[in-house]
Amino acid sequence: MAPMAVRSRTSRGPGRVRNYGPAYAGPAGIWLTVFFVAPLLVIVAYSFMAKGLYGGVEPRFSLEAYRSLANSVFLRVSMNTLGISLVTTVLAILIALPCGYYMARSNRKTLLLMLVIIPFWTNFLIRIYAWIAILGNNGFLNALLLRAGIVAAPVQFLYNQVAVTIVLVYTYLPYAILPLYSTIEKFDFSLLEAARDLGCTRRGAIFRVLLPNIRAGIITAVLFVFIPTFGAYAVPLLVGGKESYMLGNFVAEELTRTRNWPLASAISMVITLVTTLGLWLMFRLQGKAPQAKDPARSGGERRAP
């Protein structure tokens, strides 16, 4: 970080350059304070207030909302949400690792990147709808199965946890592939050959050389998939059923239907806490990653693709 010293305004000639920092960053800071930080503070405050008679809140301190979280419905939905998002994350990473590896070693990286980006940029709801068109009772898969005579009546593929997990993996897979690809791309592959020359098995080289070196990418990918799936709303709403209800749906229900705003705020706090916890855990893991073992930078030259 050599430029830091140069950048320090105090080292400049006397009074020549004013500090315009606040003038530049001020508008963005104010905008985000008003429309991002303030709303968050409002829901923190609301979660500690009592429910108003007709929606809204009564401005007095109350732990009622948090107390009402201690029931079996909330626990079941929470466990469900955690389960679905963990399974989705693991599946996405397991699929994305070989994909990222293949892309990083390919000669046509740009083309493969485009292939991943096109479905990723296609409208989110269109992608969900496409899965309804495939898995629905009158959908593509059932039409196929019926015609082939494998089933006599349409099978209900939608509205369960499996459908929610499939669509979530589909939606967030590019979020895992892209960071993994960019980390693997920087990896010095001659290290793998060196490990093999030194008598390591293929699998050993992958697990003991490649994976530890792309740890940062894996952590990013885990966060990119886990955080949005833990707060998923649209996917369980459209392809899920009662038993695949997730916390996001719970919040929306309390907000718009039951109009219990303190409870909606309290559940939002739970979602925020869990994602923050996940983030903290991953950053800690990243902090523990072996330092000075960054061959991509210390090795000097990178292998030509």
Binding site: P39, L40, I43, G231, A252, W261, I271
Partner: peptide
Amino acid sequence: PEIIIGVSLLI
């Protein structure tokens, strides 16, 4: 998560 941003802005 998007839902948190949406919910907090609505409130």
